[in-house]
Amino acid sequence: MAVFILPPPRRARLHAFALVQSVCVGVLVTLLARAAGMRYYVLPGIILGLLMILYGMGRPQATERLYRLWTRWAEYYGRWAKGYVLRICYNVVLTPVASIGSRMTGEGGDSMWVPRPTLSPLTYGSQYDLAYPGCSLRHFVISYPAWAYKSGNLWALGLLPFLLLIAALDHEKKESYSGHIYTLF
């Protein structure tokens, strides 16, 4: 689950939330007070923060309401941000690269059967058709660049930040898509 989405409320989580909110508000108020040129700019932040902590810990129902509201806003944000980042990625990264052309060929001729090798068992440790250093590393952040380089898809490195971003923003639990299309992806 995306870490910016809060998990279902439980006592410890509510307390943690109250504390974090209080600290955040306290820091914000301090900064504002400082920007406004107040002399003891730290005080308002500390006082407000402490009051919020006391209120939050003492009124768990109110904290829970705020917790749930915050979670809902976070989900809205996540959905919107994900859609935005996806559109940016597609239009600004993929579409320009597409102008060079694609490797999907098969122009014709007498046959569409093309020769293909049987993969060597040495490649079984790799998620690609080749074996290469780093191919069997578990975390894709490390193995992905190795794959991009070795497979001649260096351009795909440009997608890596967006893969990480989308993985962080996407909070839906769906593992697959089924609709009016064959499961191509």
Partner: peptide
């Protein structure tokens, strides 16, 4: 299609 596929790949 990209909007559906990319998150699936990124996460799973």
């Amino acid at each position: 299609s990209f909007q559906i596929a990319f998150p699936l790949w990124a996460k799973h």
